[in-house]
Simulated assay, not measured.
Amino acid sequence: MTNLPKPIADYIEANARLDIDGMMRPFSNDAVFIDNGKRYEGLAEIRRLLKDEAIAVKAIFTPDTMREEDGDVVLEGPAHGDFPGSPIRFTYRVTLANDAIKSMETTI
């Protein structure tokens, strides 16, 4: 997908490689990740979430739509991997600040 803001593009590209360090790089130090209503605050918690919920099951998100909504970037698309129901369609809502991901929320 073209025209993604750089921090989001970097996250998506790292996810495609299942590169946890690359996935973490775009997040700000005080970032928040909300995964289906469960809140993870700070880089250590986000890293643990991504390791357990993305890397462990080889979950790769491939956005096929993008829109701006209330200042956030909203992506939709399938995630596929070694988990029940794969692929599952997800919505990612991303808030950017200072060229970094300030918050990311995923919902099914």
Rank of each mutant, 00 (worst) to 15 (best):
I46Y: 03
G42R: 05
L96R: 13
I108T: 12
Y40Q: 02
T95G: 11
T91G: 02
R17M: 08
K38D: 07
D99S: 14
D82F: 10
F27C: 01
V32E: 11
I88F: 10
I55G: 00
R93Q: 06
R47Y: 01
V74Y: 02
V94I: 15
K38T: 14
T95Q: 12
R39Y: 02
A44N: 14
N29K: 11
G37P: 03
V32I: 14
A56M: 03
I34E: 11
I46A: 01
G22S: 01
R93K: 12
M1H: 11
M1N: 08
K6F: 10
M23A: 00
P87A: 06
V32T: 15
P7T: 06
I108N: 09
V57M: 06
R89E: 10
D35Q: 05
G37T: 12
D19N: 07
V73K: 04
G71C: 09
F33D: 00
D72M: 10
K6I: 15
H80K: 14
I88E: 07
A100K: 15
S86K: 08
L96N: 07
K58A: 06
S28N: 09
D72Y: 08
S28Y: 04
I8F: 04
T65E: 10
R47W: 00
D52V: 05
N36Y: 10
R39D: 01
A79S: 14
A44K: 14
P26N: 02
T2L: 10
T106D: 05
N98Y: 11
D72H: 11
K6Q: 12
E76P: 00
N36H: 12
D82Q: 13
K6W: 06
M1A: 07
R25H: 11
I46L: 02
S103Q: 11
V94H: 04
V94D: 01
P26Q: 04
F33R: 04
K51H: 10
D52T: 11
P5M: 09
Y11E: 03
D82R: 12
P87S: 06
A100Y: 03
K102G: 02
P84H: 11
A59V: 06
G71M: 09
R93T: 15
D21V: 04
D35N: 14
I12L: 08
G77F: 08
K51V: 08
I8W: 03
G22C: 00
A100L: 09
T106V: 13
M66F: 04
P87W: 14
G81D: 09
G77P: 01
E53H: 10
E13K: 14
D99Q: 15
I88K: 07
D52P: 01
P87V: 11
S28L: 04
P87K: 07
D10C: 06
A31F: 06
D52A: 10
P87D: 07
N29Q: 14
M24H: 04
R17D: 09
D10V: 08
L4V: 07
P7D: 02
R89N: 10
A54Y: 15
L49N: 05
A44S: 15
R89C: 02
D64P: 03
E76R: 13
N29S: 13
S28G: 15
R67A: 06
T62E: 12
T62K: 14
A59K: 13
D21N: 12
R39M: 08
E45Y: 04
T107E: 05
K58Q: 13
A54F: 15
R17I: 08
M104S: 01
L18Y: 07
G81C: 09
I88H: 07
M23G: 01
A31V: 06
L49P: 01
Y11A: 01
I12H: 03
I101P: 00
D64S: 04
